[in-house]
């Protein structure tokens, strides 16, 4: 509706755009995002996808902004994706890994983050093997912290790119059945996905061997809660999305699964199982994949697979997050 604006200065600029529902300094997990913020990310990511599709997929919006990637744990796609996203927005990027930096000399996380801030970095994308590490950084730094994965806790941009990919194919997720299968217990991807999916009205089914399922989660499947089950063949029935999680081989060594062969028999996403899902169901995987273990190669590269699209969309979603956080800092 109308509002009568007082414009005391002459530098009124263009018509102010409609307010946008972004208010966060950091992105640590998806559980603190409001629905308006999730919508803002999804809509902005749609525009960023269009930018990436242009002959020159780059704009200068964040020129003068320095983004650091600080990775204490190795990564291919997340670090590269953030770097491409930041550069596509015109930001400068500094890449740091634990090896080859002062971290090897024993510098603490807080000191490293403060040093980055002192050299003019305003956004730090961080990955750490300890759950909660980005929260420590955010509490001790004026820079904006984006969690690029912390331990078994959270991986918010992965969940957001998953949501974006699902919405592009399914439209609204209201009432859609999303089955997440595998090592749910240790999966930061699953954890962050649960929040965005439940907030979007999806029906979330977590599936895996009992030793790899979180005990605290409800088995009931009340509205607003996840369903938890050990039977993949039943769970996949009528699914609109099936997301397979990476099985880490050390889970076998630590005795959580009896053998890979047994895991494959019960929980591999293969063509026979996919038949039970709804026609047009999406196959997703956060990568990196163990083809032939949690997912059969023909399914990973089959018609239902959107796994490569997830990676492509990851750049657009991370551009959206960087744009909202970097422009929101000074607003």
């Amino acid at each position: 509706m109308l509002e009568i604006k007082e414009q005391p200065t002459t530098t009124a600029g263009p018509e102010p755009a409609a307010p946008i529902g972004w208010r966060s300094k950091d992105l640590l997990d998806t559980d603190t995002l409001s629905l308006a913020e999730i919508e803002a990310i999804m809509e902005t990511a749609e525009a960023m996808r269009e930018v990436r599709a242009r002959p020159v997929g780059k704009v200068a919006t964040l020129r003068g902004v320095t983004v650091a990637t600080l990775f204490y744990e190795q990564s291919t796609r997340t670090r590269a994706s953030f770097e491409v996203a930041a550069k596509a927005l015109g930001a400068d990027v500094v890449n740091l890994t634990a090896s080859g930096s002062s971290v090897e000399k024993g510098e603490s996380l807080v000191d490293t983050v403060r040093t980055l801030e002192a050299i003019g970095t305003s956004v730090i994308v961080m990955r750490h093997r300890s759950s909660g590490a980005p929260y420590l950084a955010a509490a001790n730094s004026g820079a904006s912290i984006i969690n690029g994965g912390d331990g078994t806790h959270a991986h918010p941009t992965q969940a957001l790119l998953d949501l974006f990919t699902m919405r592009r194919h399914c439209g609204s997720l209201q009432g859609k059945k999303v089955v997440i299968v595998g090592d749910v217990l240790h999966s930061r991807v699953a954890r962050s996905n649960i929040w965005t999916l439940l907030a979007s009205g999806a029906r979330v089914v977590l599936c895996g061997p009992p030793t790899l399922l979180p005990r605290a989660l409800s088995m009931s499947g009340e509205p607003g809660e996840c369903e938890v089950t050990t039977g993949f063949d039943e769970a996949i029935g009528g699914a609109d999305v099936v997301m397979a999680l990476r099985i880490q081989k050390e889970r076998q060594e630590s005795g959580l699964i009896p053998s890979l062969r047994e895991y494959i028999r019960g929980y591999q996403l293969n063509a026979a199982r996919l038949q039970r899902a709804n026609p047009g169901a999406l196959v997703m995987h956060p990568g990196p994949m163990n083809e032939g273990i949690e997912i059969a190669p023909d399914v990973a590269h089959g018609l239902a697979s959107v796994i490569e699209e997830q990676v492509t969309n990851g750049v657009a979603v991370r551009m959206a997050v960087l744009y909202l956080i970097a422009t929101g800092r000074t607003a």
């Binding site: 600029g13 263009p14 809509e43 525009a47 422009t327 000074t330």
Partner: peptide
């Protein structure tokens, strides 16, 4: 055409960005 990414007041407020076509 959406011009949000080209404004000279980026950073004063996060403006909504929409796809151009």
């Amino acid at each position: 055409l959406d011009v949000a990414l080209y404004r000279d007041d980026v950073g004063r407020r996060p403006a909504p960005v929409r796809p151009s076509d």
